[in-house]
């Protein structure tokens, strides 16, 4: 299931503004890769280029290559819709569909893609909710609206919704920044379980979180406001947090930034 991502020479623009410049890295399958760095350094933009969500923003365009197990996501004839089925995404703020019940929210990906068997739907929903550690909390109210859940539950509902379509890669854009510590812990535990099945990339502002959940960490930085963001280094999380090879990384991690 899980696939490797190879990025080479990736540059992303918003209109004429260059947001990230010439990024190359490899994301290992069945592992958690964390992106850290100051605000505006292009972590989220880079994350969104990995499932072609960047081009949804008006003016967004990309140069370079993103290989998903040797297939270029930006190659000729690649359908962005198919890419997003393989590379799922969880957003910063929980965003369940307000008109749908908990069940329908989880089933949304399959239903809206039109590729499912009715008999399997209930099983997939149960499996996904169990996978997101939410099943026990919601199994008695699957027909209630998803927006009635707490923030942490909503975010796990969104994770269940994302893994219901069985993607190969799961991208998470600051999934815990709107949550309290208890819910954050629940999500972090969940990430630990999910990495057995998926390749996970997570953007976070919380360095302890990066240290706790990730196997590898990438540090992004920008030379000045308005300048494009750059990848400074990517390494084993342990090394980044104990003995990084670049001075800027150590400054940022130890709080001497800026």
């Amino acid at each position: 299931m899980a696939k490797r991502i190879d990025v080479s020479g990736l540059t992303a623009y918003y209109g004429s503004h260059k947001a990230i410049d010439d990024i190359s890295m490899t994301v290992e399958p069945r592992s958690v890769t964390a992106f850290i760095g100051p605000s505006g350094c292009g972590k989220s933009t880079f994350l969104r280029t990995l499932n072609r969500m960047h081009e949804v923003t008006p003016g967004g365009r990309v140069e370079g290559k993103v290989l998903l197990d040797d297939e270029d996501l930006y190659g000729h004839g690649i359908d962005p819709v198919s890419v997003r089925r393989e590379v799922g995404m969880v957003f910063q703020r929980p965003n369940p569909f307000p008109t749908m019940s908990i069940f329908d929210n989880v089933a949304a990906g399959l239903r809206l893609n039109g590729s499912y068997k009715k008999s399997e739907l209930a099983d997939v929903v149960e499996k996904s909710l169990k996978g997101a550690n939410l099943w026990n909390e919601v199994k008695d109210r699957l027909n209630k609206p998803g927006s009635g859940l707490s923030g942490g539950q909503q975010q796990r509902l969104c994770i269940a919704r994302a893994i219901a379509v069985e993607p190969n890669v799961l991208l998470m854009d600051e999934p815990c920044s709107a949550l309290d510590p208890i819910s954050t812990l629940a999500i972090e535990d969940l990430i630990g379980e999910l990495k057995e099945r998926f390749t996970i990339v997570i953007v976070t502002h919380n360095m302890q979180q990066a240290a706790r959940v990730s196997d590898r960490t990438a540090f992004f930085n920008l030379s000045a406001v308005g300048q494009p963001g750059k990848l400074i280094e990517i390494d084993e999380t342990e090394r980044i947090f104990s003995n990084p090879s670049v001075q800027a990384t150590e400054d940022y991690i130890s709080g001497r930034f800026g």
Partner: peptide
């Protein structure tokens, strides 16, 4: 965010409009 959530699930844009934006 709702449009993006739907697009990120691999739902085509026209179905996103029909099944998520319009019902909302």
């Amino acid at each position: 965010e709702l449009r993006e959530a739907s697009l990120a699930l691999g739902v085509p844009k026209w179905r996103t409009i029909l099944k998520v934006v319009l019902p909302t």
